[in-house]
């Protein structure tokens, strides 16, 4: 009896679990579908939001050539590639690759770190806004826990990248110093050396 009960309980929980998995898979699929459907709009607004922190975003928005417009180009590419991943199981490494250039740019633009990475979080709000406006999919808004989690993972990956970029910048500085060119400004000044100097070899 007990065994039976136990069995049936296990069975029930297994079924429940299956249902839950199916549910979550379906939701995941729904969300992916929603992102596919609104991809353009979301990326558009996301990029616009991120670019609004520059003084002349208009140019960055319009110019489509990545060579004539590296900032706008890099952002658009990064967000466009990042978005579909946010509906899947997040892989941190993948995020890193996608966000690399975006973060590299933000890391040298005189922004404080929070400013630099804030645009990544913006997609949470943008997505909610867009879903809410979409009658068919408005229900999805209530269940964006996984999506938010993926955004958080992406932001954490970006944080690592940001630090890596800053460290590389300082390493570059050091390399410049080591390469000997500091002699340009740290060498004895001419007026000083006009006075007789000892033989320095």
């Amino acid at each position: 009896m007990i065994v039976l009960l136990d069995f049936s309980l296990t069975e029930i929980s297994r079924v429940a679990w299956r249902i839950a998995v199916a549910e979550s898979l379906r939701e995941q699929a729904d969300l992916a579908e929603a992102l596919r459907c609104h991809r353009q709009k979301i990326v558009e607004r996301w990029v616009k939001y991120a670019l609004s922190s520059y003084q002349s975003p208009d140019f960055f928005l319009r110019e489509g050539d990545p060579f004539a417009n590296p900032i706008g180009g890099a952002m658009r590419q990064a967000f466009d590639r990042l978005l579909p991943l946010l509906a899947q199981k997040p892989e941190r490494l993948e995020f890193s690759e996608i966000l690399r250039q975006f973060v590299q740019i933000r890391a040298v633009q005189g922004l404080v770190p929070s400013q630099a990475l804030a645009p990544i979080y913006a997609v949470k709000h943008i997505l909610r806004d867009i879903l809410a406006a979409d009658k068919e999919r408005a229900a999805l808004v209530a269940n964006l826990y996984d999506f938010d989690f993926a955004v958080d993972i992406a932001a954490l990956a970006a944080f690592d990248m940001y630090m890596e970029s800053r460290e590389r910048l300082y390493a570059t500085r050091l390399a410049e110093l080591k390469s000997g060119r500091h002699i340009l400004t740290d060498g004895g000044c001419p007026s000083k050396t006009l006075h007789p100097v000892g033989d320095d070899g």
């Binding site: 609004s52 922190s53 003084q55 002349s56 208009d58 633009q109 005189g110 922004l111 400013q115 804030a118």
Partner: peptide, 11 residues
């Protein structure tokens, strides 16, 4: 973005 620098700040 409360502290616009030369490369930041709004439009």
């Amino acid at each position: 973005a409360e502290d616009p620098s030369m490369a930041t700040g709004s439009v």
